[in-house]
């Protein structure tokens, strides 16, 4: 067992967990924040993406112990009671169907927009499609996800 303490969605949390606990297991099973999902075993689907110290990471591919001391944001923490502009954009553009990949998509999308805006790079449709390499959706065919992210990017700029 290892004691891990970190900040999750702005709240300090601490627990003793087996050393082989994945960050996603800690989030889902210990903290009961079940918006972060697991959709594959090989770090490819991106349903588990969270932000660790402000960067998108796959919580199924890191140990909880390795996140000791980190500032973690999950889908439950990106907005208070209302929707984040990216969440609104997904709704308005019908960027989700079954909803399972959606939290990971949103976390990847906000990370992508922040990086592009920080670098002053244009987030084109091609760039969005390329940036989504690590997120798989089986329902939407991506058409509306790509539209939603473009819309979310402009909403985040004006927000």
């Amino acid at each position: 067992m290892t004691e891990v303490s970190m900040t999750v969605n702005g709240k300090a949390v601490k627990a003793d967990v087996p050393d082989n606990t994945l960050l996603v297991q800690y989030i889902r099973e210990h903290l009961r924040l079940t918006g972060t999902h697991v959709g594959c075993d090989t770090s490819q689907c991106g349903a588990c993406v969270v932000h660790v110290d402000g960067k998108a990471m796959k919580s199924c591919t890191m140990l909880a112990a390795a996140a000791d001391g980190a500032d973690v944001t999950t889908i439950e923490g990106i907005a208070d009671n209302d929707l984040h502009p990216m969440q609104t954009a997904f709704k308005e553009n019908h960027g989700l169907q079954c909803g399972f990949c959606t939290p990971g998509m949103i976390m990847t999308a906000t990370d992508m927009v922040k990086r592009y805006q920080a670098d002053g790079r244009e987030l084109t449709e091609d760039a969005i499609r390329h940036e989504l390499e690590g997120n798989i959706c089986r329902c939407t065919g991506y058409h509306n996800i790509v539209k939603a992210i473009a819309d979310g990017a402009s909403k985040m700029t004006s927000a």
């Binding site: 991106g46 660790v52 796959k58 591919t61 990370d111 690590g134």
Partner: peptide, 9 residues
Amino acid sequence: IGDPAVRHK
């Protein structure tokens, strides 16, 4: 390499 999340780690 990989995807953005993989590159962060």
